[in-house]
Design a protein around this nucleic acid. Structure first.
Lengths: 196, 196
DNA sequence: CAGTCAATATGAACACTGTCAACATGAAGG
DNA sequence: CCTTCATGTTGACAGTGTTCATATTGACTG
């Protein structure tokens, strides 16, 4: 059962933990997060969190899920800026999705880093459940149906575009590229895939 | 002055610290590295490291540099597998460079992660001094001179290819893509840029 | 309503950690 | 010889994640 309101000792500790942990990660990054300071901030004893999470890592994994939700919301909002089906709207949506991904990395660097921080084996569900990836696939399909894509390039193109935008964000965050170069990337990708 | 041999208390502590820290990062990742266990392993007191590094972070930055060296060595070796100037060698070198970057991420996941871990502002020197990036630029230039590249796509292409391969490596390490998809990426990139 | 039970929170403790200030040591040079 | 300076040690401080035994509470059962 899910917690039932603020009538218990604390009430909904697990949600409160995720919530303030999320805000701490957003502001200072996940490395400097301490379970003890978190508990102190919530007026709770240091070991209270262990009734809801096995580990500090388990709590941070819950925060990771929230980070992905935040990214997906941005991608949805970007897609809705160009809801039409005209050629211009399709291309505009393609650009907007790429920019939204990179803008999120620039404006919420800690959330973006934490969203992709965990090193683990390949999990097919992770990509399948990603709203961002689904939006990218559908815009590429629409571009293909309109013959706006160069012929014969559709196979694997969703992956290629995704890794490009993601790689740019990562390299910009690690100081190897300037965020100001984002438009160059979008233009370069467009030159590579759009028919003229 | 650089240290002068094993005649002092320890001799060359700073090199030894970087060396064993590097091996620890390679095996277990940078998160679980402890200065104290490192000092114990070297038969030295816990605070001895502070004569050579201001911080734990400073030591880890030295390790980061070593990680980039290891990556650059792989890229050099890959380029030398196709040293010729024939069309086949040029394309082979392009593929080999991409594969070497991704193979390094797969075979040395901790080193790769640590190499691009730090979040910091854009530093123009970082990219300029990267051997991997220089090798990529030169192969793209050679492909262009041979008219193997589709016309009009050269601007920003080095960045686009780099972020693609890097993004693939990152997403594979975080479990969002399978490393087995690497050939698909290389083929997709080739379809996008090579003239037919 | 009374009583049991599982969920939840507490307190004290353990084994760690990074970091620092004060002190010791030894090699090198005037 | 004796000072100087880089290097290393000792001991301490303030935190950390985590566990265990214990207490408290809300909800369900008879």
């Amino acid at each position: 059962m899910t917690p039932q309101g603020p009538t218990y000792h604390h009430g909904a500790l697990s949600e409160a933990l995720i919530d303030t942990a999320f805000r701490h990660v957003q502001a200072d990054g996940s490395a400097s997060l301490s379970l003890r300071s978190l508990a102190h901030e919530l007026g709770v004893s240091p070991s209270a969190a262990y009734n809801h999470f096995a580990d500090k890592e388990a709590l941070l994994n819950a925060v990771t899920a929230q980070c992905h939700v935040a990214l997906d919301q941005r991608m949805d909002a970007a897609a809705q800026q160009f809801p039409g089906t005209s050629d211009a709207d399709l291309i505009g949506r393609f650009q907007a999705l790429g920019r939204a991904y990179i803008d999120f990395a620039e404006q919420e660097p800690r959330l973006f880093s934490h969203a992709f921080k965990n090193m683990c084996d390949f999990n097919p569900d992770a990509a399948a459940e990603s709203r961002a990836y689904a939006l990218l696939c559908s815009i590429l399909d629409e571009l293909g149906e309109r013959h706006l894509l160069r012929p014969g390039i559709r196979e694997g193109l969703d992956m290629t575009i995704w890794v490009s935008v993601h790689g740019f964000a990562e390299l910009a965050l690690s100081g190897n590229l300037p965020f100001a170069a984002a438009p160059l990337l979008i233009e370069s990708l467009q030159r590579l895939i759009i028919q003229d």
